[in-house]
Design a protein around this nucleic acid. Structure first.
Lengths: 293, 293
DNA sequence: CACCACCCTGAAAATACCTTTCAAAAGGTG
DNA sequence: CACCTTTTGAAAGGTATTTTCAGGGTGGTG
């Protein structure tokens, strides 16, 4: 059952896949947890101008067995907020914001994004993903645009602990690579929308060839998850005109990637630790001498 | 209705006036709020070896209209308690940390890193850097390893708002590019250590050819700053064995990059806004059709 | 433009849960 | 020991929640 703290994030993540009336309900609970917790199904249905059935459906979509449990989570969330752990709602970044305000808001938004992602991350899936990576014979990472950079980050890290990883830069190359994979190999796809054809294709191919497949996506209901053995959900921060969702998803994706990396490094510590120091050692001479005090 | 926090105290106060079975119930809820909140009346009655009626009576005595409301209060109390015990995650990430702890610690560390960077960022320098980028004829971004990915991120963003930017992947190419720059062009160097020769060189060349130069570095006293008109300082999070400074600098660098981007987008809003929408428009058909609800 | 298929939606039935009642059991008290 | 009071839980009664189902849209197709 999802943690209460992850609720606001979950609402944002799942809102696109909701119907209009469900969105109204989701908005109401996310906007006023304390108030909603005080209401019965009927009350909440009335307040949102929908029916009991819709309220229950929404609760289900958010990951609870029913409204009863959502209500408990809401009470818990309200308590957390009251205790000061309030997921403060920052204003959007505006065109005429002065730079210091931009800096503050950006930092705040990204921090919130990290917290949301951490709260919503399914550790069982993560555990499984780590296990797969740690034992992989070969790892392919698919991503395009900003997500490709995240993929490269993952690859760079995995290489440093002695794993064999690639992040093909173009979709054709990716599919070509995917064909080579088989059981014991791992393919990782990174896409915020969950619908990027150029990323879905190689993952599908890898999946069909028997590789273990992971998807890091902001849409756990996206097409990509059909071909993913394990799904790691990223949550995106509030979007604004200057900073669309696709652009802010990066922070969240990188956190997931870091978690994967640390997890794998832990599991393979015997070989990972020396490999890590060796790579830093090797880079030392690429640096200018230390500046004189 | 009594506040959740006062529950334990209320139990103690009222215990003497309770009958034996009610005391058993009161003890159970005070001793394990989280566990009790998960149970129905029937469940709690069974666990305490009493009946539903007794549970309800106890709830009444504690000041709630019925068990339903006591249960909500218990959930809230459990959340408060959990929040209180939370801030124990400041420790380093250890090799034997369970995965959920790793996630929490990583998120915490990165958030801290963001806060530090935002606080330490010199907005005057940022302002100057934004002005330079906004008016640049051409922008080069130098970085290697992880910093190269950050550079690519910056380039991708700048391209989307219609600026001309490149992030050469290899040091020779970088120097070759740098030679072409002159007044009105901007060169950005990204290096955590401030001593990475392969990044210093192109920046030096750009500097000497009259381009405006920016350095994004964690060491404002590093060699690189000699050739930088404007220096943007990144601060790195605590390092640990599994996560050395160089690896955690990324978060900080990306925040700076985002600030630069938003700043530039604001200044060139007239052209940036349509360019942004145009690029998203153009990518739309690279997506699979919306999932069928 | 008409038709069809599909999905959203809420009213109402069904169920689960909570609350109340009441009689039996336990524990005092004269 | 008889009687009364208090406590207790089984079962009835009442809400709240969940499920079902049919009407009403919506979008696609001929």
């Amino acid at each position: 059952m999802p943690a209460p703290g992850a609720l606001a994030a979950k609402v944002r993540t799942l809102a696109p896949s909701m119907t209009r009336s469900m969105q109204r309900v989701a908005e109401a609970v996310a906007g006023d947890p304390a108030g909603s917790a005080a209401l019965t199904v009927t009350g909440l249905a009335e307040r949102t101008g929908t029916s009991e059935a819709t309220v229950v459906r929404t609760a289900r979509l958010l990951g609870y067995p029913g409204y009863r449990d959502l209500r408990l989570a809401l009470a818990a969330l309200a308590a957390e907020q009251a205790a000061g752990h309030a997921p403060a709602v920052t204003a959007d970044i505006a065109v005429d914001d002065p730079l210091p305000a931009v800096v503050a808001k950006l930092a705040q938004e990204e921090a919130q994004c990290l917290a949301d992602t951490a709260a919503a991350l399914d550790t069982a899936q993560l555990e499984a993903a780590v296990a797969a990576l740690a034992g992989a014979r070969r790892i392919d990472v698919y991503g395009i645009g900003a997500s490709h950079l995240v993929g490269q980050d993952l690859v760079q890290k995995l290489l440093r602990i002695g794993l064999i990883a690639h992040a093909p830069a173009d979709p054709h190359l990716a599919v070509t690579n995917a064909v080579q994979l088989r059981a014991g190999d791992v393919a990782v796809a990174i896409t915020h929308s969950g619908r990027t054809t150029d990323v879905i294709e190689p993952l599908r191919v890898a999946f069909e060839h028997g590789a273990t497949t992971l998807a890091i996506t902001g849409r756990p209901d996206g097409e990509i998850t059909q071909y993913a053995d394990h799904v790691l959900t990223t949550s995106s921060a509030r979007e604004s005109e200057l900073r669309p969702a696709a652009m802010s998803s990066r922070t969240s994706q990188l956190l997931v990637v870091d978690c994967l990396f640390i997890g794998v490094a832990q599991q393979t510590y015997e070989t990972a630790a020396p490999a890590l120091s060796a790579s830093y050692e090797a880079l030392a001479h690429r640096h200018a001498p230390r500046p004189p005090r």
